[in-house]
Structure formats: C-alpha cells, structure tokens
Amino acid sequence: MAFAEPRMPATPASTVAFAARRPRRVLPGFGLSLGYTILYLSLVVLIPLAAIFLKSGELGWERFGQVVGTPRVVAALELSFGAAALAALVNTFAGLLVAWVLARYDFPLRRLVDALVDLPFALPTAVAGIALTALYSPNGLLGSLLEPLGVKVAYTPLGIVVALVFIGLPFVVRTVQPVLEELDREVEHAAATLGASSGQIFVRIVLPAVWPALLTGFTLAFARAIGEYGSVIFIAGNMPMRSEIAPLLIVTKLEQYEYAAATGIAVVMLLISFFLLLGINALQAWSQRRLLGVAA
C-alpha cells in the first residue's frame, strides 16, 4: 500500500573519535601569500625607508638637530603639513558634494563628469602645476579677475593649497561615491516617514554612514598632498620662509650634495606623516566600529 509512516534508519552508535584537528582554512595559501606580502613590502617600502634612516644617521644627533631645527626647514615643514591639511579638508567637503551628485542624480553627460574626476590622477603633476600657474598668475584668466580684489593665488601659500586641492579631489570622490551608491534608500525613507526633514536625514542618517569613507578619503588626499612636488613648485613661487615646501627643500639639499641633510628632513617628514596617518587610521577604525555597533 502507498501509505506509510516515515521510518528512520536506526542511528548507529557513534564510533568516530574527535581528534584535535587544525581548523581548515577555506582559501589555501595563507603562508605563501603572507610571505610574499612581507617580502614585497620589504623590498618596495621598508628597505628604502630604512635606507633613509641610515643615511640621515650619518649626521649624528647634533648635526641632525641643527639641520632640521633651522627656521627655514621648520617653516617649510609647517607649510607642507598645513597646506596639505587645509587642501584635504577642502576636498573632503567638495569631494562629498561631487560624489553625492554622481551617486544620486542622473543627468546628461554624467559619465563624462564621472570620468573627469579621475583626470588629476592621470595628468602629469607638472602639467597641472603649469596650467594652474598660467590660470592664476596676475595676468592669467582667473588671476586677473582676482587681482583687483586683492587676492593673490600664484606664488603664494594659497596657490599651493589650490594645487593640492586639484590633485587630491579624486581620492575623496572615489572613496565616498561607492559607499553612497550602496546606501539603502529605504533607511532614508524610513526616517522620512518618522518625520525627519531632508537636512535631518542627511546629518543623522547619511553622514554617519559615509563618515568612515569620508575619513579615508581625507587621509588619502592628505597623504598625497604632503608629498606632492611637481604641481606645487610651479605655482608656489618657492620663496624661502614663505612659499617653500619641504619636498623642494629636500631637492635643494640634494642638488647641493648635502645628502645626509636631505635625508634628515625626509626622516622628520616621514615620522610626522606616519604618526598623523596612524592617528587618522585609528579614528577611522573606531568610527567604523561605532557605525556597525561592534564596540557596543
């Protein structure tokens, strides 16, 4: 007959001994890939950096202090880090805006604008520097308009910031845009049904979600700007104590065959950058954890 209660086979007594076994990784090759990573990082990053420390070691503590303590070097370092931070900050706002427009709206030529964002990545920085200088010099297209207002851009620290803004923008846009595109619109709709205005939705819902990406974008733009050389030297005017950036000073020292002094300045830049980036990364990790509620 067709009707039957389901029958289970009698369960055999378990005879399998559970031996302590190393958990298997899903993807093999951890040892190999880690080894390769360390080798690669050593060759490309760590060994050259160590060489800088070694070379600057030739100076000895006293000479090192004299080299990096001169007012000209201190002014250059302040300018480099200050202008980089300012430019990254400007880019954080401008980049968020550009990313928002590209992620949220559909308009004619959107793809073209999207492609334009990457241009500063590809353009030789010297070309960018020359173009910006031509634009902003007192008789340039924009410079001649700003001159009567008493605003000087070319050959001033302001010009440096302008150049750094130019080269840093894509970093913010390209880190924030995908996050904005991935955001769940329903969450914003939910906030709207609860009575939140567009402004409140942006501040309370969207911003916390893109905050870690925004911070990453800021960090990348900042890091890139600290080391930028090519575009800046054309527009800066390079006056010692006023518009001379630290990387240029290093090149100057090299040209005067003061290799140890050049690496001395480099070491200071390297250390400041390292700790700044470490700090921002820690902040970023913290905000990411907070966003996902892991810390709670």
Binding site: E186, V187, A190, A191, L194, S197, R204, A209, G293, A296
Partner: peptide
C-alpha cells in the same frame, strides 16, 4: 511604515532607533 527588510538605522542602538521619530 514598516519595511520588509526592517530599514533600521544600524549605527544607532535599539533605543535611539525607537527614539528617532521623537528626537527629530
């Protein structure tokens, strides 16, 4: 409005989620 996939604010605690409508 209740959504199929909840649409909760994931960066907020449960308390802050519920309080949101009153806080805004």
């Amino acid at each position: 409005f209740v959504f199929q996939h909840y649409a909760l604010f994931r960066h907020m605690t449960v308390f802050d989620n519920v309080a949101f409508g009153l806080c805004v």
